[in-house]
Design a protein around this nucleic acid. Structure first.
Lengths: 193, 193
DNA sequence: GAATATTTTTAACAAATGGTAAAAAATGAA
DNA sequence: TTCATTTTTTACCATTTGTTAAAAATATTC
């Protein structure tokens, strides 16, 4: 049950058995069917989740179109951070793209853990650092690469996502329309042959 | 001397006088003349800095052109995080755009502070959270807005930067060429009249 | 202050991506 | 399976941004 999250966390900050034991009572399992929501628009995000199984999508509505900010890789932490941090209604929506099994922890419980265990606070810090670096990488990609290159890199980096996620979501993650993605896929296909 | 950094940090996590006193011995002042470097390409970033005075630019070389990742607002924390976190040679370069006065702290000293004081660890976590949310906002801007809109918003949000920073740097921060920025500025100008 | 280097602007054309509309294909439900 | 719905693709034209080159403006150095 906790195997993946333990690997993920211990890779950042090795924790003692006692520190893990302190966390377990706060961790719940949440199963979502495909298309169910983890956070709906206007909710206050009170939980952080770890995707034990399945894929989540973080997106928001912009002039009637959905803008995908993130498609969670397997075994990663996800929340609607702006809402979570500031306790304000979320503009970000988090939805299960596939059936999901999530490990979730409530914000106030996590804060309690952070206050009591410096090492858990450190885990929180290290996770944010990694997420920040990832996001910076994505900004560089927007500045220096064409949509085609971004698409190819995404294919290489997260091939499993393409098996489970509708192309329109991938398009908006890449910052283009699904029509443009479709056109671009055609040229990529011919280039490869 | 410490006024601005105290305000910045206390806004995120109120610290006791004792916690501040523990930090002071680790904080040094570093003055940089315009165009001097805080981190050069290939350096390992061993310091985090807080811009007490002046503006820093974080950029990297991509096929002979400089890509600006960040122009630090006054009174903010800056480092080349990928290098800092992983202790690897930095591809990011940090340079003073104006004369600067920086408060700097060495990584090993900061880690020591983090280990000893849970609240300092929390400060580190909260700063990363804020930076992550900011970066996400920037990604949304790339996806949903044209360069013109991004330019206008930047003008409104950081008017002081435009007084001190060459336009070419702003252009690459916005993800466009300086020629495009120039063209775009002309139309913005006429629109306003 | 003159000379030099750097930055910004302008222009014409090229390439990438968007918008709209509709067809085709794939998926899901009865 | 069949029908209805959703997703993906195609096509055409519009818009945005890039590329190249050169001129103009500004800053720097001697």
């Amino acid at each position: 049950m906790y195997q993946h999250v333990r690997e993920f966390v211990n890779h950042l900050v090795p924790l003692t058995e006692e520190e893990w034991e302190a966390a377990y009572p706060f961790i719940d399992v949440l199963k979502l069917k495909k298309n169910e929501f983890f956070v709906e628009e206007g909710d206050i995000a009170r939980y952080i989740s770890f995707t034990n199984k399945g894929y989540l999508r973080v997106y928001y509505n912009h002039d009637g179109t959905e803008i995908t900010r993130d498609i969670s890789p397997l075994h990663s932490f996800v929340t609607a951070l702006p809402s979570y941090v500031s306790r304000t209604p979320s503009f970000e929506i988090i939805q299960a793209i596939t059936d999901c099994e999530l490990l979730v922890i409530r914000r106030d419980h996590l804060e309690e853990l952070f206050e009591k265990y410096n090492h858990w606070q450190k885990v929180g810090r290290r996770i944010m650092e990694e997420m920040f670096v990832d996001t910076q990488r994505r900004i560089y990609a927007f500045i220096t690469q064409t949509a085609e290159t971004r698409y190819k890199l995404m294919m290489m980096q997260f091939p499993d996502i393409f098996l489970h996620v509708p192309l329109q979501y991938i398009a908006s993650y890449l910052g283009i329309t699904s029509q443009s993605l479709s056109r671009l896929r055609k040229t990529v296909l011919f280039d490869e042959e």
